[in-house]
């Protein structure tokens, strides 16, 4: 029975982690714009690093 409690604790922790990740991603607007990030990554050069 001890092992079940251990496993239960582990599974709940993992699930909580995913819940936190989900809430974090919603909060940071990851579901707001599904176009820009997908295309931005395909551009050749990094545009954030060379602000002369």
């Amino acid at each position: 029975m001890g092992v079940i409690i251990l496993l239960l604790g582990a599974s709940l922790t993992v699930a909580l982690g995913f819940l936190a990740a989900f809430i974090w991603s919603v909060k940071h607007g990851q579901f707001e714009d599904d176009f820009s990030p997908a295309h931005r990554i395909l551009f050749e050069e990094k545009n954030t690093n060379n602000n002369d």
């Binding site: 714009d33 599904d34 820009s36 060379n50 602000n51």
Partner: peptide, 20 residues
Amino acid sequence: LENLHKLNHGVQRVTVNFSK
């Protein structure tokens, strides 16, 4: 638009929200 800094050096960063 995200390369706008090349046209106006005062611009530091542009982030486009495409759907909006």
